[in-house]
C-alpha cells in the first residue's frame, strides 16, 4: 500500500549573505519527500545546516532557492499543518504548564474552554498529569521537553518538526523520552521530521535516516531502518541496530574529517 506524500522538499538551497564577509552556503540542492505518518531523522555533523532546513520547512526562514510543500501546498510561512519542538527552552516562563500547552491554540483564537480541554488531553498524553499549574522553572529538563512536545501536539499539526529536542537532557532521561516519543507517535500517527546528532537516537526512532554532508549541507545517503515495530530499548543491543549505527557513524566521520581539513 503506497501512502501519500506529506512533505515534499525540492531543490532547497540556502545561502546566508553577510555584508562585508564571505557568504555562507548552508544548504545545497536538498530533495527529500516524507510519506504520511513516516518518521524521518536527519543526522549530520554540526554546521551541516540541518536545523536551517527544519526552519525552512516550518517557514521561519526563507530558502534562497527551491520549494517546500506540505500536502501539496507550497510553504511560505508557519502554518497550522506544522509545529516545532525546539531545542532550547522555548516555553514562556511566566505561564503555567497548561497555559504553555494551550499557547498555540490561544494564538490561533481557540476559545478558552476548548483550548483548556485540548491542553488537558495532551498533558495526559505527554505524562504531565499533576503538573498543570507548575511553572517551567519548577520542572526538570525532561519534564520541560514533555511540555514542549505537548504544546506542539496541541495545535494538531500533520507534521511534527523536532529540532534536537533531547540534546540538553542527560543520557537516562533522553532514553526515557525517546520511548515516550515513540509511544506518542504511534498513538497520534503524525508525520515526524527529527533533527539530531545522536545517531542511535535516529536509528531507534526512525523509519528512515537521512545523512547530511558537512557544509554546504547535501544529502549524503538515505537509509531505510528495517527494525520491527513497536520497538523498545532492547532493540538497541541487537546486531542489526549496531550495524546501522556503525554504518551511519562512518559516513559522518568521513564528513567531519573532511571538514577539519578544509
Amino acid at each position: 500500500m503506497s501512502k501519500t506524500t506529506a512533505l515534499e522538499i525540492s531543490n532547497i538551497s540556502k545561502k546566508f549573505e553577510r555584508p562585508g564577509r564571505p557568504t555562507i552556503e548552508a544548504l545545497r540542492d536538498i530533495n527529500l519527500s516524507v510519506k504520511q505518518g513516516e518518521f524521518v531523522s536527519i543526522v549530520g555533523a554540526s554546521g551541516s545546516g540541518k536545523s536551517t532546513l527544519l526552519r525552512i520547512v516550518d517557514g521561519l526562514t526563507q530558502a534562497t532557492g527551491g520549494t517546500v510543500s506540505v500536502n501539496g501546498k507550497i510553504v511560505t510561512r508557519p502554518g497550522k499543518d506544522r509545529a516545532v519542538v525546539f531545542q532550547q527552552d522555548s516555553l514562556l516562563p511566566w505561564k503555567t504548564v497548561i497555559d504553555n500547552v494551550a499557547y498555540g491554540l490561544a494564538i490561533n483564537g481557540v476559545s478558552r474552554r476548548e483550548r483548556e480541554q485540548t491542553a488537558r488531553h495532551f498533558i495526559n498524553v505527554s505524562g504531565l498529569q499533576g503538573f498543570e499549574s507548575h511553572f517551567p522553572h519548577q520542572l526538570s529538563g525532561g519534564m520541560r521537553q514533555r511540555v514542549n512536545v505537548a504544546r506542539a501536539l496541541a495545535v494538531s499539526p500533520d507534521i511534527l518538526l523536532l529540532d534536537e529536542p533531547f540534546a540538553a537532557l542527560d543520557a537516562q532521561t533522553r532514553e526515557v523520552m525517546q520511548t515516550e516519543l515513540l509511544r506518542i507517535w504511534e498513538e497520534e500517527k503524525k508525520t515526524v521530521v527529527l533533527i539530531t546528532h545522536q545517531i542511535d537516537e535516529a536509528v531507534f526512532l526512525s523509519d528512515r535516516v537521512v545523512v547530511f554532508s558537512a557544509r554546504p549541507g547535501q544529502i549524503r545517503e538515505e537509509i531505510e531502518i528495517e527494525l520491527p515495530r513497536p520497538r523498545d530499548l532492547e532493540v538497541k543491543r541487537s546486531a542489526t541496530f549496531v550495524a546501522y549505527v556503525d554504518h551511519i557513524w562512518k559516513l559522518i566521520e568521513q564528513e567531519v574529517r573532511m571538514g577539519m581539513k578544509s
Binding site: 516550518d58 517557514g59 521561519l60 510561512r77 508557519p78 502554518g79 497550522k80 506544522r82 509545529a83 516545532v84 525546539f86 532550547q88 527552552d89 522555548s90 516555553l91 514562556l92 511566566w94 499557547y103 498555540g104 490561544a106 494564538i107 490561533n108 495545535v155
Partner: peptide, 23 residues
C-alpha cells in the same frame, strides 16, 4: 527562542508583542 516559538505558531507582530515581548 521565545519569539521563534510564537512565530512558529503563526503569531502576528501584535501577538508576539503582547504574549512575549511585553511580559
Amino acid at each position: 527562542a521565545l519569539v521563534d516559538a510564537a512565530r512558529s505558531f503563526n503569531a502576528n507582530g501584535w501577538q508576539i508583542f503582547t504574549t512575549v515581548t511585553l511580559p
